[in-house]
Simulated assay, not measured.
Amino acid sequence: MKKIINSRPEIKESLIEPFRKMEDILSLSCVIGDSMERANIMRHDMKPKAADKKIIGPAVTVKLTAGDIVDCLDVFEIAKPGDVIVIEAFGETETSIWGGLMSGLARNAGVVGAVIDGSCRDTDEAKMLDFPITAKVCGPRAAHTAYSGRKEPLEINVPVTCGGVIVNPGDLVVADEIGVAVVPYNNLEEVYEKAQKQADMEIATREEILKGASVEELLAKFGRI
């Protein structure tokens, strides 16, 4: 058995806040993914299971062990307001590692969402709490921790693989109804500049389409559709 709990990395909120202000941008995960030339996009089956709201924030990562899924309650000692909890659960579909009480604890801690490469449950409670969860599946079987009392093996704030993407502590997670994109922390400024430029162009293109512009006119003006 092992338990590894690393401290939360230092994160400049000034690098995160501009992305939070993009919350109203349509298809935000697509815009972010395009700005990284289609890299760092999670698998298509990572979809919202609870509250209908975007998830935007730096990752606090959790790595579980295949075949021995435990509750990750220790993460609440690390997470800070604005964080996103990202869990590597090896795509486990029959054991849920996040439930309604976890959603309540996360909301109280100021966590803005959870992204789980595995299963969650109690999604009705999460909706009541207005807490967003993106996961591979949802199902009623709980982890064994409530019965065994065991909370390890568990690793917190280590590199994880979630939805086919490597996520490091502090990387930016952007999840919406379409999917999930992850921006490496060291690339935040570059990606934001590209994403905002693309978002502005898409808004302008959308307006031209509503005015009746043709494909040729759009390509001539914007260079892409």
Results as ranks from 00 to 15, higher is better:
19 F>G: 02
21 K>C: 06
23 E>H: 13
24 D>I: 10
34 D>W: 10
34 D>A: 15
44 H>A: 13
56 I>K: 05
59 A>C: 10
65 T>F: 07
67 G>P: 02
69 I>R: 01
74 D>E: 14
76 F>S: 01
81 P>R: 10
84 V>E: 04
86 V>I: 11
91 G>V: 05
92 E>Y: 01
95 T>P: 02
96 S>L: 02
98 W>R: 01
98 W>G: 01
99 G>I: 01
101 L>N: 07
103 S>V: 01
104 G>K: 10
105 L>N: 08
106 A>H: 03
106 A>I: 04
116 I>Y: 03
118 G>M: 02
121 R>Y: 01
123 T>N: 15
129 L>K: 07
132 P>F: 08
138 C>M: 11
145 T>S: 15
150 R>L: 11
152 E>R: 10
154 L>R: 07
155 E>I: 07
157 N>A: 08
163 G>I: 09
165 V>Y: 07
166 I>C: 10
167 V>N: 01
168 N>H: 14
170 G>Q: 03
170 G>T: 03
175 A>H: 03
181 A>K: 03
182 V>T: 04
184 P>M: 07
188 L>W: 08
189 E>A: 15
190 E>Q: 13
190 E>A: 15
191 V>A: 06
194 K>V: 15
196 Q>E: 14
201 M>V: 09
201 M>A: 14
203 I>V: 14
210 L>E: 12
222 F>S: 04
